[in-house]
């Protein structure tokens, strides 16, 4: 690898890591986004000069970047604030689709018998990227209310999805071991797209953020796999960073809703028969747990804070802690005033 490219990719990787670090703290979040964007510009800028372009290649890159930038900027700027979650789903999905197409393109150059070290990551990228693409599109449709946001279930759904997954694994083995069937990975892609749709259908609209986060981690892994295929370090490092942090983030998000990831993803399965019987009864209600860091961040962003003590607070003997918090908040140097909501509840 060319020295200049290697150094530029290293710099991009450092900027991505710093960007993630800033993005996860309230103070620097917005700068973190710029830091990561700078990393992206450096990685792209370093890649371009050493490529050998065909005329057609030059044209499609020019047209493709122009069209994509227009769609991306227009879509992100113009949608209403409330429509932002589905835009994230959409932008995640197209990334997964791109990763799958890059892997397909690269696999084509090897003919019918690609070496295992290239074929394995390519096939992985095709499957995971396609699942992410199709799943994200369903998430987008649900949030945009192009289709119903309620879980779509039918008897035997788990079995069907399991069979689909088994079929995909079978095809993966076929492509890797037999490999002489031309375009067998097209079938693989179609199956993965179907699984992506089937996987998100039974999940309700309110759980979509967790699902999008999971698919985001998927896309990261697909990008990393494409990086292995192309022997490109920028793709491997950035993709893996997203895959790893996205996986943890998915867990944190479902934890914050007081549910397990398994419950979010498969909670609707098998509920076809029980239907409404479970509603209201002993069904576990969600508890929102927070840490001191969460509270500090929330308060820092708040204009007014109203503390409503309940019976639980008294049971937990937390009066003094709340009093301390209130004293801190009412401290004139912070600029807050007592809004007049005083303790009335708590028998």
């Amino acid at each position: 690898m060319n020295l200049a490219i290697a150094l530029a990719y290293l710099m991009a990787a450092v900027l991505f890591i710093l960007g993630l670090k800033q993005l996860s703290s309230p103070k620097g979040a917005r700068n973190g986004n710029f830091t990561a964007a700078a990393g992206m510009v450096i990685a792209l800028g370093a890649t371009l000069p050493l490529l050998h372009f065909t005329t057609a290649g030059l044209v499609i890159i020019g047209v493709g970047v122009a069209v994509g930038a227009l769609i991306g900027a227009f879509g992100a700027r113009m949608v209403k604030m409330t429509a932002i979650p589905q835009m994230v789903a959409l932008f995640n999905g197209v990334g997964g689709g791109a990763a799958a197409l890059v892997a397909v393109s690269e696999l084509l150059t090897f003919g019918t018998r690609p070496p295992f070290a290239e074929a394995f990551p390519s096939v992985f990228s095709i499957v995971i990227g396609s699942i992410s693409f199709a799943g994200s599109m369903v998430a987008f449709a649900k949030l945009q209310e192009l289709m119903t946001g309620t879980p779509i279930t039918y008897p035997g759904q788990q079995l069907v999805n399991g069979l689909l997954a088994a079929l995909i694994i079978g095809f993966v083995v076929a492509v890797l071991v037999i490999a002489s069937i031309p375009f067998s990975f097209v079938a693989l892609m179609v199956l993965a797209l179907i699984l992506g749709v089937a996987f998100v259908l039974p999940i309700g609209g309110a759980d979509m953020p967790v699902v999008i986060s999971l698919l985001n981690a998927f896309t990261g892994l697909a990008v990393a796999a494409s990086g292995f295929t192309l022997n490109n370090f920028a793709l491997i490092v950035a993709g893996t960073l997203v895959g790893a942090s996205g996986s943890l983030l998915t867990k944190l998000m479902s934890d914050a809703m007081g549910r397990s990831l398994g419950n979010v993803l498969f909670g609707a399965f098998g509920k076809v028969r029980t239907g409404t019987a479970a509603a209201g009864g002993k069904e576990a209600r969600s508890v929102r747990a927070g840490s001191a860091e969460d509270l500090a961040t929330l308060l820092a962003y708040s204009r007014r804070v109203i503390i409503v003590p309940g019976y639980g607070l008294a049971v937990a003997q937390a009066q003094h802690a709340v009093r301390e918090l209130a004293d801190l908040l009412e401290n004139p140097s912070r600029g807050w005033k007592d809004a007049g909501a005083h303790e009335r509840a708590a028998g």
Binding site: G95, G239, L249
Partner: peptide, 12 residues
């Protein structure tokens, strides 16, 4: 933000 970072696939 991480979603934007995996846009690095543009390099590929």
């Amino acid at each position: 933000g991480t979603n934007a970072i995996h846009g690095i696939i543009l390099v590929g």
